[in-house]
Write a protein that binds this DNA or RNA. Structure first.
Lengths: 344, 344
DNA sequence: TTGCTTCATGTAACCGGTTACATCAAGAGC
DNA sequence: GCTCTTGATGTAACCGGTTACATGAAGCAA
């Protein structure tokens, strides 16, 4: 037995569909007794409006699409949590779309969003902007999050990866490190590239030795980096990984190799995922409030959907959360505002 | 300029809407040249079908709703990852619905799913079944995951929490522990209640002393439990928390208090979230493959949507992953199959 | 040529809502 | 009594697709 439709309710209540619609949507131009009667009938029939039909006729789905490259790890889980909290507050639903790294499948999926969502929050650090724009439905409001740079202005949100990396290197230098190893993220990933750039700049400016090893943002590649260095008997006193998971991998490998952290080698990551404060030694990392970041993207998208003009590229500058995995700088060396300890 | 519709394409290509539909959906009863012509025109106009309209007329959305109580922590992130992987494989989209603990808002949201999704995976360990069934749209296929027990059979998936808790207690006992503290989860939560029940049963059977403290599944309540015990100068040699996050909180608190784990007090959790193997000492925990669990729910829901008959209550029995936070049992005491070390 | 089949194409109904506009009754003003 | 206004209610078009059925042309056999 299929679900009741608005016409079933209308027939059962001996009124027109228009009245039913009015009764259930709280229109004022309806007699209160009639409204109550219709509501009773609807409840009795167990009528639940068909959201799809409603969306079609209203040309509005109250749903926003979230495009992310991956769901692995705590970064996305935090981001999603922040977006969900905000969306729920605004009465919006979240349709998840994971690109799984495959650009072509991603394009298909992007198309599938048309008529399903009112707008998109797109986080695609691994795709080129041209590719992205070519397939973003033209009239679809969208907020770009950490996407590659591109022509023109668009509503956009970005982590200042360069500044974050610079701050980490400065923190390491202040703690006395001189020979830095950077475990980079995937080359195609814009976040990874900018963190590398910030690292290069800061090391050059501060006269630090820099060795760059290629990683892929997974824990294993952090472990592998240490193995490589070990095999070469390379000398280094700090490892800065382009994200926390790789830093964790490196940290574990160093511990297994019996190298003292931070006394022999300092370790730092990027992202401040929740587990960084739980491992031992707790990991120093560059932090933005990931959940807030996600929530902000949703707020701006909601504004866009409601027709607000918005062409801002908004930046979030990470701060360094100094924990046990790096040596603390001497008290008064606070050229840059570096936050100590934990936020919670 | 709004997006092109199928009628725009039809007009531009001088054919009927039916032909356009046929051309774009790969129907065979259309002349190849005409099909190609239509596809060219569609591409030129940048036509992207309106999924909402398509769904309405097909009475199928290719979307499944995921109802979860919360998005905090790695358990849900892993579950979601598994579900997404499977859904994407089956060509399904995921619409996220977080209940945020509020039962009434949850009900509204459940209703909002009608006409938006083809089916639901409902994970609602904190809601009573009556409440749930009363508001699950009658004709909506749904797979229940870790829900409270109820009358009748339904497609359902459950972690065998009792068996998992029993296995953990047996493992602790085998390692020589005699005075167990159990940090329980929220009383309204069915998982929490069953883990407590398993703990009670096993302790009674094995003649172990048991102290139960109330927790709420968050890290803090694990910490708080240790503080309580400390204040009372209580004697105990093992802490079994009803989930990993509380176990982590307890572990951290014990470390801060200078109590050796596992030598003075053993610690075990439940869920095997990814970070359990990264902290130090690595946490012993009861494990199911969370991602697989989620994927399985999606597979069964997809079957249900396609009309398959399915009334099975499927169980997943956790195994104990013995790590550094508990003492290992002597070699030949393997009454129950307990897995050593780490998977991966 | 006629009649029948086959196949490509078009027409229009339908999915289940919303809502502009038409209609109609009641009350007000004269 | 008549017109005008006001407000409740109904009718039907519309959102943008899909598809059952109608149509008509081509192919083929007799």
């Amino acid at each position: 037995m299929p679900n009741a439709t608005i016409r079933d309710v209308a027939r059962e209540a001996s009124v027109s569909v228009a009245s039913v619609s009015r009764a259930l949507n709280g229109a004022t131009n309806i007699r209160p007794e009639l409204r109550d009667h219709i509501r009773d009938v609807a409840k009795r029939l167990g009528y639940v409006p068909h959201a799809g039909a409603r969306n079609l006729s209203l040309a509005r789905s109250s749903t926003i699409g979230v495009v992310v490259p991956d769901l692995h790890g705590e970064f996305f889980s935090e981001l999603l949590r922040g977006m969900d909290r905000q969306a729920s507050e605004l009465g919006l639903h979240l349709l998840l779309m994971v690109m799984h790294g495959e650009a072509d499948r991603g394009v298909t999926a992007l198309h599938a969003m048309r008529g399903r969502v009112d707008g998109l929050v797109v986080m695609a650090p691994q795709i080129t902007s041209d590719e992205l724009f070519a397939h973003l439905p033209k009239s679809m409001p969208s907020v770009l999050v950490n996407c590659a740079p591109h022509e023109g202005v668009r509503p956009e949100l970005r982590v200042d990866n360069v500044a974050g990396a610079v701050a980490v290197i400065e923190h390491l230098a202040a703690g006395g490190c001189r020979r830095i190893v950077h475990v980079a993220g995937p080359e195609a990933n814009i976040d990874a590239r900018e963190r590398l750039r910030g690292t290069r700049e800061a090391c050059a400016r501060l006269g630090l030795e820099l060795r760059v090893l290629q990683g892929d943002f997974n824990e294993d590649s952090g472990t592998a980096a240490i193995a490589t260095l070990h095999a070469e008997r390379a000398a280094f006193d700090a490892v800065f990984a382009a994200n926390d998971m790789m830093a964790v991998g490196a940290l574990m490998a160093l511990k297994r190799a019996g190298i003292a952290v931070p006394d022999q080698v300092a370790v730092a990551g990027f992202d401040n995922i929740p587990l960084t404060r739980l491992i031992s030694p707790a990991l120093t990392t560059a932090s933005i409030d990931i959940a807030e970041f996600g929530a902000r993207a949703v707020v701006r998208l909601a504004g866009l959907i409601d027709g607000a003009a918005d062409d801002t590229l908004e930046w979030r500058a990470p701060i360094v959360i100094a924990r046990e995995s790096t040596r603390q700088p001497p008290k008064n060396t606070t050229e840059n505002p570096i936050r100590r300890g934990d936020r919670e």
